[in-house]
Computed example of a mutant assay.
Amino acid sequence: MIRRADMKSENTNYELNPYINARREWTERYGDYITRARNWRVAAAMSFLTTLILAVGLSITATQSKIIPYIIEVDKLGKVAALAPAEELKQIDTKIIKSILANFIIESRSISTDRIIQKRALEKIYAYLPRGSSAATYIKDYISHNNPFVLAETKTVTVEVSTVLPLSEKSWQAEWQETSHDLQGSLINRKKWKAIISIEFSSPTTEAAIIANPLGLFITQISWAQQL
């Protein structure tokens, strides 16, 4: 009986002790905050790790991405007649090559009084000339001695391509007629020309190259002369 009374007295003193009660309250209140803070740190660390893994994965995917060029063939009305990835085409239709080479001659030799049209023509022809190639040097030298913007101050030149024929797998021959008029519209002369053109193919790898030269046809050598 005495022992039970002593234990009851100790429990009563424990409950009435203000220091012990304060410690108990601190433990219950701030211990919960500490637990929450620890859980928040763990969650933040896991979130950061997940974000890092995703970023690394996206970076690897981006470096391995590949642009696949497509070749589009259109009919006389401008409607799409054929569409396929360039890598899947075993042999390119010669009509497409003829069209590109004919347009190259027209853009290279025509002279327009409209400076915007003339500027765009020059941009188009350079899209088919590899840097440092013999053809690029030839065209650059020709333009430097026959500046179309200067010539347009006195005349215009229209070009009509008559034939574009293959000489071999990589060599082509083009023939055309140039008609020159003065700025009043009077005929100056008509001349016939012939060119020998060498080509090669290289798939474009950038968005700009695909837009400018989707087929990847490049003119590596070219020379032209007037026909007598």
Rank of each mutant, 00 (worst) to 15 (best):
T158Q: 15
D182E: 10
N17Q: 08
R3S: 05
I106D: 00
D93E: 02
P130Q: 02
S162T: 14
V74I: 08
R120E: 01
K76I: 11
Y126V: 04
I92C: 03
A45N: 06
I97E: 07
I60F: 14
G78N: 07
S202R: 13
I96P: 01
R115M: 12
S186V: 09
S180T: 08
I96D: 02
K98T: 06
G132K: 08
G57D: 08
Q91A: 13
L228V: 08
Y70V: 07
L83D: 00
V56D: 00
K119R: 10
R109S: 01
W26V: 11
P166Q: 04
E10M: 12
R4A: 02
T179Y: 04
W193S: 10
R109A: 02
L77W: 09
S198L: 11
W224N: 12
L49G: 02
E169Y: 11
N13L: 15
I71L: 07
L101S: 00
E160G: 14
P85I: 00
Y19G: 11
K95T: 04
A37S: 01
V56G: 01
S202L: 13
P69H: 11
M1E: 11
A62K: 05
I116C: 02
I60E: 13
A43K: 11
E73T: 07
T205L: 11
R190K: 14
Q221K: 15
I68M: 13
I117P: 04
A209N: 06
D6R: 11
G185M: 04
A45P: 00
T205F: 09
A195I: 04
Q184V: 08
A135K: 01
I219N: 06
N11Q: 09
A208Q: 13
L77H: 11
A225G: 12
H181P: 01
S59A: 15
I96N: 01
I71H: 06
Y138T: 10
Q226E: 15
G31N: 02
I72N: 05
P204V: 07
P69G: 11
K140P: 01
I219Q: 05
K90P: 00
E153S: 13
I106K: 09
T158W: 12
A225R: 13
E28T: 14
D182Y: 10
A43T: 05
N13G: 06
F218T: 05
E10F: 10
L165T: 12
V157Q: 12
Q118K: 05
S198E: 15
Y138L: 03
N147I: 03
P69C: 12
N213D: 05
I222L: 14
L122A: 09
T50V: 06
S59P: 06
R4K: 04
L129P: 00
A81T: 01
S186W: 08
N189Q: 11
I72C: 04
L228M: 07
A135Y: 06
T12A: 14
L167F: 00
N146Q: 03
V150I: 15
W40Y: 15
V56H: 01
T163S: 13
A62M: 07
S47Q: 08
S203D: 15
R23P: 03
Y126A: 01
E169L: 14
P85H: 01
S202G: 10
Q118N: 12
K191Y: 11
M46W: 13
K8A: 15
W172A: 03
S65C: 05
T156I: 15
P148T: 03
M46G: 08
A22C: 10
K79Y: 07
E178R: 08
Y126E: 05
S112G: 08
Y128V: 00
S59F: 15
T63I: 01
